[in-house]
Amino acid sequence: MNILDDLKLQYKLGGIAQRVIYWNVACFLVSLIFFYQFSIGQFDFPNWLALSSDPSAFLFKPWTFLTYAFFHDGFMHLLFNMLVLNFASSLFLTFFTQKQYLGLYILSAVFSGIVFVLSFYFLNYGASIVGASAAIMAILVATTTYQPLMHVRLLLIGNVKLWHITAVILILDLMQFRLGNMGGHISHLAGAIFGFIFIKLLQNGIDLSKIVSKIIDFFVNLFRKSPSTPFKKVHKNYKKPTEKTPSKIVTKDKTQQQIDEILDKISQSGYDCLTQEEKEFLFKAGK
């Protein structure tokens, strides 16, 4: 099995957090091909992808309130965000569902984008932003709000409480507020506020992620073909059904059992713990 097949299998078996990371990486590769200006050594994102502080974005490019959260203006920007996203996602999904995760990512990106546009409008500034930082901050703060005393083991440091990590990141954002990238820091803090609100509402029985789930389900059902019901035929003559070959049943049971064992192994130790033979077996079984 080649690397491409391995990546396809990881995407297929991985959860929503891994898929969001894949989407971010894919968008970065696309932007590297189409939007990177080699002559000046930086990205030049079009205004139909990046989120502009121009209020007309509300009316003419509303999708940019989401698309900006999947693009990054540099490799280090992408790398740092994906490392923090992977860390925050693993903690969040310990307590909440994948639908809540996706809903929080999308809603926090939209909320942070709106705060950014309104802030720059009243400050009479003009700029555009890209990056998943606001959504990542929302996921991290949401988890911290729900379980602030959770112990996290960090390399070279040891065990620290989750709220300590979140507090350091927020303080660093506040310290850099006037130094540069003010729009980015505004969206980061907006994402943190939304993550806090999301959990507080959830604890009071209001799950905002259902908004996203309902919208996604609507479009999925809209384009899904309704299964056609075949006509039923009634036969007067009864014919005893032929017995299935026992060997086929045994083979199917063994295959399914092996798949279940591998999936259990992934849930306990992760995909990377699989042997090459197990990866190839899963890839063939998924076809």
Rank of each mutant, 00 (worst) to 15 (best):
F35R: 00
K61A: 11
N86F: 15
I157N: 05
I249V: 11
S247P: 07
P241G: 02
D260F: 10
W48F: 15
E277W: 03
F111R: 02
K225C: 09
D264V: 05
L201V: 00
T229G: 06
I215E: 10
F38V: 06
L102A: 13
V212Y: 14
H72N: 11
A142V: 00
F58M: 03
Q147F: 04
H72S: 14
P62N: 05
Q18S: 14
I21E: 11
D264T: 10
A135H: 07
A285N: 06
K287T: 07
V110T: 13
G14P: 12
L78M: 13
P46A: 02
V130E: 07
S269D: 13
T145L: 01
R178C: 03
K284C: 06
F96W: 06
S133E: 14
D253F: 13
V141L: 05
L162F: 09
F96E: 01
F75C: 07
V115T: 09
P62C: 08
M82P: 05
M175C: 10
D173F: 08
F96S: 01
Q18V: 13
A69Y: 08
V25C: 10
H235Y: 15
K161W: 04
F70V: 08
P46E: 04
N237I: 12
G191T: 00
A26Q: 06
L93A: 05
F71I: 07
F120V: 00
I169L: 15
A17Q: 11
D264W: 02
A135G: 09
G131N: 04
V110W: 11
A50D: 02
L162R: 00
A135K: 05
K61T: 07
D73Y: 08
I136K: 02
A50Q: 07
L274G: 07
L208D: 04
I21Y: 07
I40N: 12
P148H: 02
F120W: 07
L13D: 09
K214T: 14
V110S: 14
T245P: 07
E261T: 11
A17T: 01
N237P: 01
F194D: 00
D54H: 05
D207Q: 09
V25H: 04
A127I: 02
K254E: 14
F28C: 07
M1C: 10
F80S: 13
M76N: 14
Q257K: 14
S226R: 15
M1R: 06
F28H: 02
F231D: 15
I266P: 09
F65W: 10
I21K: 12
S52H: 06
G15Q: 08
S187G: 04
E277G: 04
N86Q: 12
I157F: 15
F95D: 08
F60H: 05
G15A: 08
K12E: 13
F28Y: 14
D207R: 06
A132L: 08
F218K: 15
I3F: 15
L140A: 00
L140C: 01
K240Y: 10
M150P: 00
H77I: 06
F283Q: 06
V84H: 03
G113L: 09
G15H: 10
E243C: 06
K8I: 04
K287E: 15
T143R: 03
